[in-house]
Design a protein around this nucleic acid. Structure first.
Lengths: 215, 215
DNA sequence: TAGATTGTTAATCGATTAACAATC
DNA sequence: TAGATTGTTAATCGATTAACAATC
């Protein structure tokens, strides 16, 4: 099998942004869209967007632009988000609860099919339509469910243990909300979301901004 | 005033990661740490980390490494996270509630001092130690509080309105959790966190991973 | 046809990495 | 001193942008 050209990570992130945008405008009756219209709406540079698509041989029509439905389908095909995918979540705290209840997830074909925690006070409780399960039974449960996407919404101290359990249960990619670095074996993908780091970067921005209304 | 060298964004993100890590190990009695130990712990390449620090004239000792306390203080000074900073939050839903209750925020000197919503059923309710206020009074309230950091935890359809209100109220940097692109005037900083986009990128990873146990 | 917008190339820009003299 | 690790330079690498012939 010929190796696919290595796709830059920023390209994938931009395609995800674009896909989210196309989902937004689907309801409106727009048939075609140009790369510069996408730039206006999303901030993604038009030439860059066209280049991003060119990695995958996605084509618009010169002089016209892109068919919205077609473009959306093509990007969905690239990101492999056309079909429902089961997701398991570890950590039934506030954040975990927010994620399970987040209506945007099913809308984008991600379905949280099980929630786990190690806190006996939480195990057995109901979170929306799911019953919180003992994290000790995660592997067993996922043998049935077959999820390959996992979300860590537990505290930093537990994150590495949770990671190990997830990987053991066949999870192949992990979205980590715990503010700590987790180690995974080769062949497992991780993305980290860390509120505090985001705020820290914004704090730097803030310190560099000129003060308004001074003098 | 001589213009400071433009700092690469990835440098700031790495410094934020490093800072979070140094906060973690503060409790353990480690006095010094080398750039390669930081690489092991955080995945940040050692040479890159040293280069990152060099933008700011932060120095370790050849042959020894970095004094942990000193390094932490210096990075805090760069990111301007040494002192408590007030933060206001818009959106008292599940995510907003999770953020207000997130113990990691005060630990890192970010204090959510007010929560707003436009839903009459939520206004007046208590979220942890805060009472949800009418978003219509945000500007008025923030005139007292003086927060310059804002968090958007509302739905995508409301995000642009919320943004405008925040900017109007003197907010200078915004952490946006709504899955949509917001427009801000020049001089206002934004960072977006979008769960769905993270999952979409992971979904791509997943499709590229070799299937284990096949054949 | 004229106008608009594409895909792609080449030029630019910026970030990462390797290497090493300096130094604790 | 010998070993370790720094800060910085130069080389490499990769991503972004501008420009334009092709084409609807």
């Amino acid at each position: 099998m010929p190796r696919e050209t290595k796709i830059p990570l920023p390209t994938l992130e931009r395609l995800a942004t674009c896909y989210r945008y196309l989902t937004d405008i689907e309801s409106r009756n727009v048939e075609t869209i140009s790369s510069s219209a996408i730039e206006t709406a999303t901030g993604i540079h038009a030439a860059q967007f066209r280049k991003d698509l060119s990695y995958f041989g996605v084509f618009g029509r010169p002089g016209i632009g892109y068919d919205v439905d077609d473009l959306k389908r093509r990007i969905a095909g690239i990101l492999k988000v056309e079909n429902e995918q089961p997701v398991i979540l570890v950590g039934a705290g506030n954040l975990g609860s927010a994620l399970v209840g987040f209506f945007g997830l099913p809308q984008h074909n991600f379905h949280i099919v099980a929630v786990f925690d190690n806190n006996p006070r939480k195990i057995g409780q109901t979170l929306w339509d799911l019953q919180v399960q003992d994290v000790g039974r995660l592997s067993e449960t996922n043998a049935q469910l077959g999820a390959r996407i996992g979300i860590i919404a537990g505290p930093a101290v537990a994150a590495q243990n949770i990671t190990d359990v997830l990987v053991d249960a066949g999870i192949r990619v992990i979205l980590n909300f715990a503010p700590t670095t987790i180690r995974v074996p080769d062949g497992v993908g991780v993305r980290n979301v860390c509120f505090i780091q985001e705020l820290a970067v914004l704090s730097y921005y803030l310190s560099k901004l000129p003060e308004p209304n001074v003098g």
